[in-house]
Amino acid sequence: MDTIGKENELKKCACDNSFDEDQLYDQLDDIIEQHTNNPGALIPVLQSAQNLFGYLPEAALKRISFKLNKPYSEVAGVVGFYSYFSTVPKGKYTIRVCLGTACYVRGGKDVLKAFSDELEIAVGETTRNNKFSLEVGRCFGACGLAPVIMVNDEVFQRVKPSKVSEILNSFE
């Protein structure tokens, strides 16, 4: 399998968190260890890895591929298939604009465009200062409040494009 262990090529994390990166990779090894010989290990390991790093760095994916003896192309295929997985670092705040049916017909798309314009990023991207990431959500179960957005765990209701900068400014 094309699982080349780049043990010495652990990329230095670009974000300014205080975690010691080696420690994170030690934890990743523990996670993989718990799933060795489990044929359905890949997705749970990827989920745990994403929780650990906040995203899925290339070096982590290569390590997962190597240790689970799965081709790197297959690992990448799974990561690319599920929108849940991200290979780019997320900002401090993840904005998810609902484009479920109710939010969509009540202008969710305009709200999304306003965030995109205001932050100068496209869906799936993160601002240069690592503060905001922009994503699309699929129904938060609050259709009566449409259009709805979430910023991390906080819900904002009946959002209008004109309210977008105000919302952004409320986050430090």
């Binding site: 094309d2 081709p71 192309s73 297959e74 295929g77």
Partner: peptide, 9 residues
């Protein structure tokens, strides 16, 4: 060898 797999969706 495993150099290719389905990517994306």
């Amino acid at each position: 060898v495993g150099s290719i797999s389905p990517q994306g969706r």
